[in-house]
Simulated scan of single mutants.
Amino acid sequence: MKVVTAQLSTDSGEDRVLVTCRAVAVLDGASSHGPDVPPATLYVDTLADQLYQTIDNDTDLSDVLREAIRSTADKLDLHPGRAPSSTVAIMRLDGNVLDYLVLGDSPIIIGGSDGSVRTIADTRLADLQLPESGAYRERLKRGSGYDERHRGLLRSLRRRQRANRNREGGYWIAEADPNAASEAVTLRTPVDGVDWVVLATDGATNPIAALGISWHDVARLDNIELENLLVRCRRWESSVDPDGQYQPRSKRHDDKTVAVIRL
């Protein structure tokens, strides 16, 4: 397989991309914003390192992720509900089969040789339809911009999200509870019939969609072209939609990571 990656970071720099002989993984970290808690950058660095050590083993991807979360929590002395978190998207080649895992809102897009496009997504957080999420989006649509009221809604939203994190009826994410890995969305498909696979964080997928660029076109790009695409996405956010009116989002710019695997 041939892998092409590109990243464009904001000040937070909480995205990570991991490439091995058999696998590709993308992480999108989120800070807990709590006192005496390691930053999300340290969390995703440690989680990526733990994944790198075992991801090529002939072990179920959920088990690989479970042990990576457990090791990360032990190393950083993290406790459920009071830790940074991260989405996880993994594709691994296993002989004539492709294994996929998604935990959180970093999707995997699969391009078939018949021209089809299939998306593996974890929508459980969005499906909660938390009131603060709807409120800040409606305000942005009305042109409020990123004001103090917006920031207050985000603080309240984070508290409500934590209350629903890694629990039945809520949503699941890589944090300090290894059992979250068992709740990941997984899939196995034959390699035959798959031309390409794209892993991306939501900071990239959302503006790519707004620009009307197809995943077929993204899958054809080389490294420089992929980097230019992310720059174009950021430019669109800055010049066309700086206040999130057309595409409501929590902040003007987010980290952007895309990995393209051609088979």
Rank of each mutant, 00 (worst) to 15 (best):
T5A: 11
A6M: 10
T10H: 11
T10D: 06
D15S: 11
R16E: 01
L18N: 04
L18C: 08
L18V: 08
R22S: 09
R22G: 03
V26D: 00
V26S: 01
D28P: 11
S31A: 15
D36R: 13
P39I: 06
L42E: 12
L42D: 14
T46C: 14
L47E: 09
L47P: 11
L47K: 10
L51P: 08
L51E: 07
Q53F: 07
T54R: 15
I55E: 00
D56W: 08
L61M: 12
T72Q: 08
T72M: 10
D74N: 14
L76V: 10
L78D: 10
P84H: 00
S86Q: 09
M91G: 06
V97D: 07
D99I: 02
D99W: 04
V102P: 00
P107V: 03
I108W: 00
G112W: 06
G112Y: 07
S113M: 10
D114K: 04
V117P: 03
R118E: 14
A121V: 13
R124G: 00
R124F: 00
L125A: 15
L130Y: 05
E132D: 13
G134P: 06
G134R: 13
A135P: 01
Y136V: 04
E138C: 05
E138F: 04
R139F: 04
R139A: 14
L140D: 08
R142W: 05
R142L: 15
G143A: 07
G143F: 12
H150L: 06
R151F: 07
G152K: 11
L153Q: 12
R155F: 02
S156C: 03
R158Q: 09
R160S: 13
R160A: 14
Q161R: 14
E168R: 12
G169H: 09
G170Y: 06
W172T: 08
I173T: 11
I173L: 12
E175S: 15
N179L: 08
S182A: 14
E183V: 00
L187I: 02
R188Q: 15
V191M: 11
D192H: 09
V194Q: 03
V194N: 04
D195I: 01
D195H: 08
D195V: 02
W196V: 02
V198E: 00
D202V: 00
D202E: 06
P207C: 07
I208L: 11
A210M: 13
I213N: 02
S214N: 03
S214I: 01
V218Y: 07
R220Y: 10
E225D: 14
E225Y: 03
R235V: 02
W236D: 06
V240H: 03
Y246G: 05
Y246F: 07
P248D: 04
P248R: 04
P248H: 04
S250W: 09
K251G: 03
D254Q: 09
D255Y: 07
A259G: 09
V260A: 08
I261F: 03
R262L: 05
R262A: 09
